[in-house]
Design a protein around this nucleic acid. Structure first.
Lengths: 211, 211, 211, 211
DNA sequence: CATGAATGAGCGTTCATTCAT
DNA sequence: GATGAATGAACGCTCATTCAT
């Protein structure tokens, strides 16, 4: 990995520059995007590396120049997405979800479901299988983060509703179900429909803290 | 136990000819049940025929005595389940869903999610994959039946709510999301929780036809 | 692995018997023999499973019906051979190598080199690579057994020669070198040559304990 | 460092044209040395070009600037070594091995085994495989040279021992076996041990021609 | 001269499916 | 009806080799 032979740049490497990095970055993204498409369309297990390579227009071997394994490729896709999502859920990282935050949480979630449809599909796919789900939480203590979020959510409802437990379940049901529909059958959800759903969510769950 | 002719059924086994069918049926169900368990736990693609055979306590080969392929086995499992469910949705097969029917629909659905958890898991799994979803509707004109149901549902809401389109979307979201939670994390849903959710559903969606 | 369905032997399994076992044993030996040939001819790393299958006249896949991996196949070959050899080295398992035992050790070794030429070739091959040699000693505490043997050998020489350390080195050199020649170029070693070499070994190393 | 024309060698690098050859030679040797290390440690087949490049601190591609293939690289390493060894065996190239030459042959061999340990390891490795052994003798009529040497050695023993055939076999055994031990487990051979072995060899095989 | 991204053939392995018994 | 040995196509992956720069 170290280049001990860089004595004379002019003679030794006259043609290539540090945009090897650019190539790598670009290629890496190409592969991740292609894998994302294939995974979300066929499911992780039913997707073959050959299909991903074909989708990307490259050779199978090249994929392993960028990722250690098919599984690691999946992990990278998810990690990137989850990192991106993480901020959205409780941005200022304090111990409370404010009314305003809850509102913008809806917006961000629904936005993300339109922008990152394929990621959501994969997440839903994986959540169906007990075996694979550990992938999600193996890396960065995602598990504990998730638990924290759950507690904050519970607190939000506890401060606003009489039966927070049940309200939380209802909340999660609506959100999860709508996500599923939005993500799997986006053609069924016009922008107007989505807006009206948003408003309904506001009306149901957004309200000031009970004093 | 010794020296009987194995070659001539007529002479050899006067007692077993009566209910070959029963044996076949029993075996068939054993295989389907075992496959159901394995599929729902690991996912269709990640499940092997060997695992199913092991789960059933039979040989791999025998499975092919009852089903043409792994895929057909899946189809049979789903067909059976979907047929069973079909009646529930609009039992008397007329052109309307009555208020009462809607109520009992809730009950049946939620019952089924507890009783047939594994079927639901598989259904959800498959619904994530564009390719496989066609399986579901290939056989018996399930597609058209589904469409009919949708129309009836729309009619139900049209006769009761101002914005039926949106109301239907909301209805489907809640139901689908709750199903997902109930089916994937049943331990999170006590009977009380389920009851309270049922009541909430009644309150939201059960009301008499607007005249 | 358990057969829960053996209710009626006569009807359920009229054609196959417990000579499945025989088939398995036979096939296992065929595969091990074929692998032995290929490994010894080309070396472990340069041998492909396809070549072994071809040598055995079976499909690649079948090999994995009998062995978990190419590496395990190697291990089994070696284990079998080493177990066979183990007795020869110090049969009555006491703490001493007698003069007589040493004599019969020569005989057995040289016999084995003619009978099990390929095994010896593989052993020599593996002994060239630090990485792979651990294979040999991973299983059955072969490592410690080997050390024990070395100690006994040292004791043998200590009781008979002035400079046992050097004598042992000389002994090992002659034996190892002769083994190499015998095993790699057997055509160069007529039976007469082998006999004369045996006698030379006797003369050099076989003598009664110094009192 | 900036703005020089890279395209025209004549203008650009007036100072580097003198000893391109030196650079090439240096690089070539670096690659051969690195390959030697890797080959001897892991074995030829288990060694990858990438590992060699890493060991040498250069790129994979560069290796192919100096050698046509991995196999040719091996051949070159061996050729160089064998040429070097060839002189040692019968330096003055006449038709006889004198007593003195035999003595210095021992010394040179044993020296070489310490100095060129890796070469010897590779030679031993390859000698285990029927297929590859032809590599050694394909190039420069090494085969016939080897045969010549054998004849000279036989003559040496014929002139000094009663049963030269057997003596030669014994001689080769001791030498080969000791080489193996010295080369594979050098830590087991202290300088004293080596000296005593040398003396033993002298005593056994060095004696004046019988008149 | 030197780089490392890229290829593709072939590896070890798995598994749905077949078939003699 | 029932078995499990056997097959072969396809999988995930490796690596010697090529080539644009």
């Amino acid at each position: 990995m170290t280049n001990r032979s860089f004595k004379n740049k002019i003679i030794m490497t006259p043609r290539t520059e540090k945009q090897y990095k650019d190539i790598r970055k670009e290629r890496r993204e190409l592969i991740m995007d292609s894998a994302l498409m294939v995974f979300s369309k066929k499911g992780y297990h039913a997707s073959s590396v050959a299909q991903i390579a074909k989708e990307a227009g490259i050779s199978k071997g090249l994929i392993y120049n960028y990722f250690d394994s098919k599984e690691e490729l999946l992990k990278c896709i998810l990690d990137e997405f989850i990192s991106m999502m993480a901020d959205m859920i409780n941005p200022n990282n304090d111990d409370e979800i404010t009314t305003e935050e809850m509102k913008s949480f809806f917006d961000s979630m629904i936005d993300s479901m339109k922008t990152n449809r394929e990621h959501w599909v994969i997440l839903f796919q994986l959540s169906m299988q007990k075996d694979v789900i550990s992938l999600l939480f193996s890396n960065q203590g995602l598990g504990s983060r998730n638990e924290k979020t759950m507690q904050l959510a519970y607190k939000y409802f506890a401060e606003r509703f009489e039966k927070p437990q049940e309200e939380l379940l209802f909340f999660r049901s609506v959100l999860k179900g709508f996500a599923l529909i939005l993500v799997l059958t986006p053609h069924m959800c016009s922008d107007d429909m989505i807006d009206s759903m948003k408003k309904r969510l506001y009306k149901l769950f957004i309200k000031p803290k009970a004093n």
